[in-house]
Amino acid sequence: MNDILSRRGFLRSSALSLIPLQAFDVVQSLARGQQGDSLAGRGATGTLRDPSVIGRPRRPTDPKENDREIQAIEQQLACNCGCTLDVFTCRTTDFTCTYSPELHREVLALRDDGKTAREILDTFVAKYGEKALMAPKPQGFNLWGYLLPGVAVGGAAVILAAVLRRREAATTNATAESSPPQVAASPEELERLRHALEEVKD
């Protein structure tokens, strides 16, 4: 019993402390900032109290990392850490991955060698196999990967249209004999239908 009480108390107090503490800390850190250790635009860049909890240390951003062409290349290359992401997305999202920054540097190096986007992709395929591409090249068997769904839907649509047309012809022929449709019914029956229809709300 004692155990449950203390646990409940613990949870309650910790849940209560959660939000105010965060807010307090932010305020405090801003206040500290104004004392001069890291105020925006003034003084030296401060050091962190505990750099170990912030993930892998980063290098400053290279201007090339905002280069649209490099981004486009990296978006076509798969990261090989098992994340299923492309190199660009992985390196800008999964900051624990060590593979994607490495692959990124490889792309940069190849780019510095003056290679075109096509050549860089080819180099990667030669080095890591076809799985280095986010989507296989539409060649050979893999071309079928791209074409089959479209071909299947298109083919099915043609068949469906043909079948429908034939059936339509069949039904219109059948009805043509009896058309124009005549309603043969006694007045009581028609009255009954009218009565029944009144019940249907529209």
Binding site: P181, V183, A184, E189, L193
Partner: peptide, 15 residues
């Protein structure tokens, strides 16, 4: 066309 056709069907159902 449809009115005549479905009236016939409805009458049939009522019968």
């Amino acid at each position: 066309f449809l009115k005549a056709k479905y009236t016939a069907i409805a009458l049939e159902a009522l019968r």
